[in-house]
Design a protein around this nucleic acid. Structure first.
Lengths: 230, 230
DNA sequence: TAGAAAATGATACGGAGTATCAACTTCTGT
DNA sequence: ACAGAAGTTGATACTCCGTATCATTTTCTA
């Protein structure tokens, strides 16, 4: 890293060069000790160009969420009446794949957000945007009562939590099967919130108590439910 | 608000005076257009004092979370083996009461965080700290498997989401019974995650299906469970 | 190829935040 | 009560981020 060579300049956008320079310098000397001047000097651009490309110093660290948010909104919009949970799961998987695809950059970002408070806040707040997309989708689906609003909020939060739980384990190197882990985690969400969904047909739950053992009761229960009870 | 009068100076700490001056000026001209110089001039202190008292401009807006976090940690630590959900609910209620007690300041803060991105990020990130307290408590309680870790994360997120759902409705003036609403919201969380808890004693769930109506089946089920079945 | 349009860089500036030192106030021991 | 130590506060200089403006360079079009 001695500066910019002519071959590199013509092959990469200023944005990419600044991003690469930034991450390289952050890794070497930390976020707070790296100035914009440092970054732009290494990238071979003017400081003004930096602020034309990124809104702020923090913005260079984070991906462009707009594209990703639009993609999951499209996936959710394409869901049918019986595929709500599938759509939610697919949307979460789209987000996860984006991070997995970033690979080392995602890990570098994680390292930075772990030690720089402003970056951590930015990261945490970005998860909120995804949660709001899920929540709005569920609000449209469920209805307008306060109970529906709460339910939408809880499910959206659970999906984002499950996703981030898996992502964090991957970023920390604690799992090498993140896709499978996400399926499992979303299964737990479905179990918690899907089980009492009104999509089930004709299930009635009766609660009766008995002090007798299940092995005594089971044949009798089967008999009671048969078409010709003994 | 013409500046500081002597009587006021001796009766209030510099911190209180700066906080009051800040909120007053933020309401009048907005967060970004209010400078530290404006605030300290109105409060009758030096600019250096501001930064000795608050780490940054944003810090003047937010409450001191440390005390509150310590209180809910103490409440959680005081829970017994059979009162997990009660403790979690009490801890959430402690947080809500703190905000309700702030009254108009909480509403002013909400207005500010709604329009200033940096403040919103700070607010969102502060909720994370409460979530981590709940999560650690649950982690200690549940165990060490990946499934336990996920469950702790999901429950913690659900409690914070329920709390914030209620708080936001209150801040927006959409409810005048926030304590009652919180109980209801936490009930939904318990319903989602509490039902399969291993704390229940001796309940066995048997799932059998029948095409007959419940009014036909109920007498037979009662009979099957009685001590002397017909 | 000339001119228009777009992109880029240099420069000045304001404001948040940091560091240092001077000045002031409070506390302590005799 | 007073001198000196300790603690607090304010003034000042500075860095860095971010904004605005204008000059210069590059790219595009007819």
């Amino acid at each position: 890293m001695r500066g910019v060579e002519d071959g590199e300049t013509t092959g990469r956008s200023a944005r990419d060069r600044m991003t690469a320079a930034a991450f390289s310098l952050f890794a070497e000397r930390g976020f707070d000790s790296t100035t914009i001047e440092d970054i732009t000097r290494l990238a071979g651009v003017g400081r003004t160009t930096f602020f034309r490309t990124f809104g702020s110093k923090e913005d260079v660290v984070f991906p462009d969420h707009e594209d990703l948010l639009a993609r999951i909104e499209a996936r959710l919009a394409a869901s049918g009446p019986d595929s709500t949970w599938v759509a939610l799961g697919d949307a979460a998987a789209i987000v996860l794949e984006q991070y997995l695809g970033e690979g080392e950059v995602a890990r570098l970002r994680y390292g930075l957000t772990s030690v720089v408070p402003a970056l951590r806040e930015r990261e945490i707040a970005s998860a909120q945007r995804y949660r709001l997309v899920f929540k709005r989708f569920l609000r449209d689906l469920l209805g307008d009562t306060p109970r529906d609003a709460l339910r939408a909020d809880l499910i959206a939060a659970a999906i984002v939590t499950a996703h981030n739980h898996v992502l964090l384990r991957w970023l920390r190197g604690e799992t090498s099967t993140p896709q499978k882990d996400l399926t499992t985690a979303l299964g737990a969400v479905t179990e918690a919130f899907g089980g009492t969904s009104s999509e089930d047909e004709g299930t009635t739950v009766v609660v009766l108590r008995s002090g007798q053992g299940i092995e005594t009761l089971l044949p009798r229960l089967r008999s009671a439910l048969s078409d010709s009870p003994d």
